[in-house]
């Protein structure tokens, strides 16, 4: 029984970390109408960045965020400016293909630099553990959860308590109307995409610390993130958090009580089952956006 409780705690903690990785995805969708398949690869690239900073310059991964967040933010700016902005019609579909291509290119570049052996980010707080109901939870989960809460809190403040956020939410409701009201739609789009990409710096650092990764990991990761985002309801930040925590608690319980082999299967299976009865996800508006 205590094992189950422990797995619930672990599920909540890792759910927070996954939500942090997924929040940029749902934000980009809401504001830019873009499904960013490259988000998974951004996370992996950020993980490599943290890894390289620590390995070659001996910069602590947490401290390194001061460098990696701006770098990823810039990458987001570049990608939005060079590719996403060019998509005028059929944005949802074409963005999927364009961002997939971006992911492939990044994967190729990372593969050229680091080859395909698995890497992981080490630090004292990755190896140290705290006992929680009979499970030994690495400190990084606690730090990661705290970091996720802080960063998502900041995003929440930005979206719901700032002038920028007001413009952003107006765009989510109606892009054309927002543009007519004098909102600089292009600028908000670019910044949103860059912020979403910047957040992957933190997500990547945590991802690299909680598990070994290589460039190929991005496919598995993006599938999970997309699943979290549609279960929560595309475009809903709160939904992504609830879905992420819910799914990870569920799969952790399955892993502890039954077998870890099937936990990932149920990660996808539960979502698909939910979507049969609630096609718009937990917090999505029913057939909100006709595509």
């Amino acid at each position: 029984m205590s094992l189950v409780l422990g797995s619930v705690v672990l599920g909540i903690l890792s759910g927070g970390i996954y939500a942090l990785m997924a929040v940029g995805l749902t934000l980009s969708f809401g504001v830019l109408e873009v499904v960013n398949i490259a988000q998974g690869m951004f996370v992996i690239a950020a993980a490599y960045l943290s890894y390289a900073l620590q390995r070659y310059w001996h910069i602590d991964p947490l401290l390194g965020l001061v460098i990696t967040i701006p770098v990823m933010f810039l990458l987001g700016l570049v990608v939005e400016w060079s590719f996403i902005r060019r998509l005028k019609q059929d944005r949802v579909m074409l963005s999927i293909l364009v961002s997939w291509a971006v992911a492939l290119i990044l994967e190729g570049v990372v593969g050229l630099i680091f080859a395909d052996d698995f890497r992981s980010i080490h630090s004292w707080y990755v190896t140290a553990t705290v006992p929680v109901f009979g499970l030994y939870v690495p400190d990084i989960y606690l730090i990661g959860f705290a970091l996720a809460v802080v960063l998502m809190g900041l995003v929440y403040l930005l979206v719901y308590r700032s002038r920028f956020g007001a413009a952003l939410r107006a765009m989510v409701q109606n892009r054309e109307a927002a543009a007519l009201l004098g909102i600089d739609v292009q600028r908000i789009s670019t910044l949103t995409f860059a912020i979403a990409t910047g957040l992957t710096a933190a997500g990547g650092m945590l991802f690299g610390a909680i598990q070994a990764f290589n460039a190929d990991s991005n496919l598995d990761l993006i599938s999970r993130l997309l699943i979290i985002v549609i279960l929560g309801g595309m475009g809903s930040m709160g939904g992504a958090l609830v879905a992420s925590v819910g799914l990870l608690v569920a799969v952790n319980i399955i892993a502890v009580t039954w077998t870890p082999n099937w936990s990932t299967f149920f990660f996808f299976g539960i979502t698909i089952l939910v979507l049969v009865f609630r096609p718009q996800g937990f917090f999505g508006a029913p057939a909100a956006r006709k595509v």
Binding site: F29, V35, V92, M93, I96, D220, S223, L226, I227, V229, I230, M234, T264, F268, T271, I272, L275, P279, Q280, G281, A287, A288, R289, K290, V291
Partner: peptide
């Protein structure tokens, strides 16, 4: 799921 993006994501999930 009648929306395009959800359809795409579910089909990716099928492969996984």
């Amino acid at each position: 799921v009648r929306t395009m993006h959800s359809f795409v994501i579910i089909t990716i999930a099928y492969v996984m």
